[in-house]
């Protein structure tokens, strides 16, 4: 009797399962024919694109590694080789410094166009304007001033003009080379001085403004 009941129950369950399976298959068929579930044309492409995005991390890691190696190399060489750090900082200061972005001498109607053959700045520090120009026998001098009682002086003088420059008890004195000319850099309190000497002339640049990078400014001076 128990076996019979078990068989009846099993048959009923099998019939029920078969009905459910049939309904499920019917739903699948309806879904296939439903336009809302149809695969759109570019869906495959979008899917592949999303997947491949994750693969782009590898080139970025490679680039980051290279940058890290270059920066670390520069840092090690800068620390270990005297003078190299100064070359690097002056190289970058030409592009990064905004002190000299105010007036491009060439854009200002050739500010120094009449002084051919003279050393003139290619940029004027922000806030400064040309106060005076002296064009004498032994001296060609430009004086720049701002409204904060600061001054930058660029003087080209013949080697016949002898100068005493205050270097005693200076905070810093070091030999430098700028644009092929050897010279001295002196810092004393608020004032800085750069002296550059060539075969025929001496270039003397001085200021009392700590916001002006005098060596960077000197590197932007050119002979017209």
């Amino acid at each position: 009797m128990n076996d019979y009941n078990e068989k009846v129950i099993k048959n009923v369950l099998d019939m029920k399962r078969a009905e459910e399976d049939a309904e499920f298959l019917k739903e699948i068929q309806e879904a296939k024919n439903n336009p809302a579930f149809k695969k759109k044309k570019n869906e495959t492409k979008l899917f592949i694109k999303e997947v491949s995005k994750s693969k782009n991390h590898r080139p970025m890691l490679r680039a980051a590694s290279i940058v890290l190696v270059v920066v670390a190399s520069l840092a090690i060489v800068t620390v270990s080789v005297e003078g190299f750090g100064e070359k690097i900082t002056s190289f970058f200061s030409n592009f990064v410094s905004s002190d000299y972005a105010a007036v491009d001498v060439d854009e200002e109607d050739n500010l120094f166009s009449e002084y051919k053959g003279m050393y003139v700045p290619t940029f004027i520090p922000e806030g400064y304007k040309v106060e005076s120009v002296v064009n004498g026998e032994d001296i060609f001098e430009l004086i720049l001033k701002n409204n904060k009682k600061c001054m930058v002086i660029i003087r080209e003088q013949s080697l016949d003009l002898k100068s005493n420059i205050d270097t005693e008890d200076a905070d810093a004195v070091k030999e430098i080379e700028i644009n092929g000319m050897n010279g001295l850099y002196v810092k004393k309190g608020q004032t800085e001085r750069v002296v550059l000497v060539s075969d025929a002339t001496m270039l003397y640049i001085t200021d009392n403004d700590s916001n002006v990078d005098l060596i960077g400014f000197a590197e932007l001076i050119e002979k017209r």
Partner: peptide, 18 residues
């Protein structure tokens, strides 16, 4: 030639003859 005694109020002094 450029090194001078310590100045207090002066940056540089020059003399030339041509």
């Amino acid at each position: 030639d450029l090194v001078a005694p310590c100045y207090t109020n002066i940056d540089s002094v020059s003399a030339g003859l041509s």
